[in-house]
Design a protein around this nucleic acid. Structure first.
Lengths: 253, 253
DNA sequence: TGATTACCTATCGTATACAATCTTACGTGG
DNA sequence: CCACGTAAGATTGTATACGATAGGTAATCA
């Protein structure tokens, strides 16, 4: 599909995935040079990556402190779901308008993967796929801008879930995805809207207390599955050698 | 209001204004170091500014050529207005829900400025105020994320107008703004939606042929009203002196 | 022993330096 | 006169260097 994702894109995707799958948790610190070493790039590029992540509300940068994984306020959470409702409503309208068999096939395939992940009990995978269901739907709207906005707001909602959601219940109602697909396939916009509203309401309702214990690990450990090559312990540009000083960066507060 | 807008913010605002008011026209080139000299900052910071402008679809960066003011495709244009409809519908819903006298006063004041600008025949001012009416409304929704999205999409629509719109007709129906305020004040969501839909339809309808003549000028001339201090001919950090080599950068193609 | 202060390290903000690549202009050959 | 190849210049991509500042740590004093 995409010819050559730049290193920036790779790091961006890796960090985004790590945050959404909750390998990095809200409040975790992300020092620029450490991340740079992990991805074998200079702070200049890390900064660009951070800039993008910040624009999507996934991390917070600015005040000369290290960047941190975002901790959305309750207001932010409500706002995100409010906007999400409006956007996904439009998505449904457009998808129904442009509905075709390929769309159905793609959604069915995705749903199958969701079910599989749920059966396997893979929480990170489930979380990721649940979000991707909505971005996939958005892409079918044929409106790239809408798609971008939805992707953005879905990311924000994922972080909200990480902060306020119950630890593990993020299977996001695969059932409900099933019903939404059917309603869209039937061309029934009204009931699809209702289903989506109910579905997002359910997701939002999981915004309750969700204190999860802290187990401090190193940034390298948390990110290693996402770094190309599997770890940050090789392919460094022959500088700053020795033990890479990857220590506890986890924020315990 | 805001304590200290950083130099980055100033440059961002200046360039955004210049683009929206069509002092910079789609296709115009924006070399990093030249812009940096105009705003007395290094390319590093210019890059951050460009990154933000790019995220909002105002300029295009990337392929190792100079950044250019964006030229949205027709598809982009349609997409922007589609999303805008959905977002502004939600705005109306929320504003009605939180309606209070201060909101009315602020909108009336803004409308007065719009009328004044229209009477004075100041096209750039009119264009800017017409857009700001919608962002102002969005801010009253009390949802910062929605506000950001609306601001983003309104910017995109402004550029679309610059590319496809008729040269001067951008007074954006002050009348219609009047009616929308009234409908919201009356708490009549349905008719406010209709009015907004019609209004945006009108704006979108101006996307016809809009060939405007080219009159090559220097980037410094085009931007000088937006640079703090009024011109880029002073306060440069004691380097690269002499005549600043500001030549024709206008893209004529 | 507890609070306070001075220092010191970590980390970021900004500028600059160097390398890669595209654009443009010019000269040469058909 | 036009097409094409080559070289010079302009412009961006990436890395590094330097200065500023916040936060933590340890030593000091009551």
């Amino acid at each position: 599909m995409s010819g050559k994702p730049s290193r920036i894109d790779q790091a961006y995707t890796a960090l985004k995935s790590a945050i959404i799958e909750q390998a990095l948790r809200p409040g975790d610190k992300l020092p620029e040079d450490e991340v740079g070493q992990l991805f074998s790039m200079s702070r200049t590029l890390v900064r660009q990556v951070f800039s993008r992540l910040n624009a999507e509300g996934l991390i917070e940068i600015g005040g000369k402190r290290p960047a941190t994984v975002a901790i959305p306020s309750l207001d932010d959470a409500v706002a995100a779901f409010e906007v999400r409702q409006a956007l996904e409503r439009e998505v449904i309208t457009l998808v129904i308008k442009r509905w075709n068999p390929e769309h159905k096939a793609a959604l069915e395939a995705h749903l199958a993967r969701e079910i599989e992940a749920a059966k396997a009990g893979s929480a990170p995978m489930s979380i990721r796929l649940a979000g991707e269901f909505h971005t996939l739907l958005a892409e079918m709207s044929g409106n790239p801008l809408l798609s971008r906005f939805v992707s953005d707001v879905v990311s924000r909602c994922s972080v909200v879930l990480a902060v306020y959601g119950r630890p593990h219940s993020a299977d996001c109602g695969v059932h409900e995805h099933r019903d939404i697909i059917d309603a869209i396939a039937a061309g029934d916009a009204t009931s699809a809207w209702d289903l989506m509203r109910h579905h997002l309401g359910e997701v939002e309702a999981r915004a309750l207390i969700g204190s999860s214990e802290d187990s401090p690990r190193s940034l390298a450990d948390m990110l290693s599955p996402y770094v190309e090559g599997g770890a940050g312990t090789k392919a460094r540009p022959a500088k700053n050698r020795g033990r890479p000083r990857l220590q506890v960066v986890k924020e315990n507060r």
